[in-house]
Nucleic acid binder design. Structure first.
Length: 445
RNA sequence: GGACCCAUAGCCAAGUGGCAAGGCAAGGGACUGCAACUCCCUGACCGUUGGUUCAAAUCCGACUGGGUCCUCCA
């Protein structure tokens, strides 16, 4: 397995810290709004990463947080006259509903900032104690100058950052690069701390959550490319300061979703919400996976529509094969794929995934197999080959999170099929057409 | 102002030194009682321009066009 590590800017062989185990942490959403389809990119991609590792027999420990303390949440709560908790709960629920819709697994660790406050405060206190942070007037800042390797992840030099025209000038900071760990406040949701009554800044939560959940440097830390700087850079700085390790062995960052050639973002207002998608979410999932995760994706309705159709055809093909086997009572989920062309497709699939999760090429392998599935579904005679093709296809689909629902036919449905078959044989086309109509109405053709 | 990324067929998109994957769309053929589904066949001087090399889409330089980061963003 080779993974492009953003920390070293190179493809590296993936070696997990513990054999046959992978620990993954992905920066999750700030829950003040519904997620848009650009936000869905890391969600879907890392779900596939997880699924691939699991399919290879790894035990995957997967965590992704909810940022439920944030200025935007406070603003929203104020605007609506409700509590911050009411706002964040609503959007956490919506987020999980979107995950389901998108075919993502939801059984992973979902720490919330509000539930980690004691450890966040303790962590900041520790940084202050070790003089990696300083308190000014109830605010706490991280002293970036103490971290020699600061800028390594995002390829930035300290003096370049210092000369950057857009860095906020804050009188209290020793250096403009220092970032807020704790903010004293009299407004909104807030906690008691040794520094002041206030709330945490946004770079500390992931570090303490990772420490709480995993207790050590994790294997993979993921998120969107826009988190590279300053968020992940700051996480690393804190981790080095407190734990003397860089938080994660491999850093993975996904590219943007563009719309009309521009980055889709909440601040630009040019987004499409997941819940408003007009196509089958699985089609959207294919659309996303058709591009390598580090490249940009340009959103267009036409492009999406294409994958929507492709997904529907795929669904049809797979269920047709399943049905053909079911009608002959010959389903065998244990049949191992031994036919060379099926093995080739499976090998190509794995090779693509092993190469920095090249899902675009994995889909090409899926296309190879798809053709084979169609051939078998049409011939309906080689039961062994049919089962092999179906099982191989299901393996790929489950890795990509594109499972096709395959429900066994009822006796009634089987009867319809045999009557249709008989009518066609007897050239009773009126009856055949009517039976075909019924099958179509039941979505069985 | 500083740092950086991208440019491959009508569209989407792999490939990152050794004769340019795949999909969609389009055209032709096959299968079918008629359909649908499906199967087979057909497509590229890799943005422009210099250079390095036996060999470049792939490396280096310039240019053009698009985009990103340096501030919240996945």
């Amino acid at each position: 397995m080779r993974i492009y590590n953003s920390y070293t800017n190179a493809l590296e062989t993936f070696i997990p810290h513990h054999q046959n185990q992978v620990s993954i942490y992905v920066c999750g959403p700030t829950v003040y709004n519904y997620i848009h389809i650009g936000n869905a990119r890391p969600v879907i991609f890392f779900d596939v990463v997880r699924r691939y590792f699991e399919s290879k027999g790894y035990t995957v420990r997967f965590a992704s947080n909810f940022t439920d303390v944030d200025d935007k949440i406070i603003a929203k709560a104020k605007e609506e006259g409700v509590s911050e908790t009411a706002v964040s709960n609503r959007y956490i629920e919506a987020f999980l509903a979107d995950l389901e819709r998108l075919g993502c697994k939801t059984d992973y660790w979902k720490p919330r900032v509000t539930e980690c406050m004691p450890s966040i405060i303790a962590f900041i206190a520790d940084l202050v104690e070790k003089e990696f942070a300083y308190v000014v007037d109830g605010d706490v800042f991280f002293r970036v100058s103490r971290i020699e390797s600061y800028g390594k992840l995002s390829n930035r030099k300290i003096d370049e950052l210092l000369s950057g025209a857009r860095i906020d000038v804050n009188e209290k900071k020793e250096s403009p690069l220092d970032f807020v760990l704790w903010k004293r406040t009299g407004e909104g949701v807030r906690w008691e701390s040794p520094f002041s009554v206030g709330r945490p800044g946004w770079h500390t939560e992931c570090v303490t959550m990772i420490d709480n959940l995993f207790g050590e440097e994790i294997d993979i830390h993921g998120g969107g490319m826009d988190l590279l700087f300053p968020h992940h850079e700051n996480e690393i700085a804190q981790s080095i300061a407190c734990h003397q390790h860089r938080l994660a062995r491999y850093w993975m960052h996904n590219g943007w979703m563009n719309i009309d050639g521009e980055k889709m973002s909440k601040s630009l207002g040019n987004f499409v919400l997941v819940k408003d998608l007009k196509v089958d979410p699985k089609g959207f999932r294919m659309f996303l996976l058709a591009t390598h995760y580090r490249g940009p994706i340009n959103y267009s309705e036409e492009g999406l529509e294409g994958y929507h159709k492709e997904w529907q055809r795929l669904e049809k093909s797979v269920s047709a094969l399943h049905r053909a086997l079911d009608l002959q009572s010959a389903l065998d989920p244990t049949a191992l794929p031994v036919l060379p062309e099926i093995q080739t497709a499976l090998a190509d699939f794995d090779e693509a995934m092993e190469n920095d999760f090249n899902t675009a090429n994995a889909l090409t392998a899926l296309n190879q197999l798809w053709k084979i599935v169609n051939q078998f579904a049409r011939q309906k005679s080689d039961l062994s080959g049919m089962n092999q093709a179906l099982n191989a296809m299901n393996r790929m689909l489950s890795v990509l999170g594109l499972e096709v629902r395959q429900t066994p036919l009822t006796l009634d449905e089987k009867d319809l099929f045999s009557r249709w078959e008989a009518a066609r044989k007897n050239k009773d086309f009126a009856a055949a057409d009517s039976l075909r109509q019924q099958l179509t109405e039941r979505n069985l053709l």
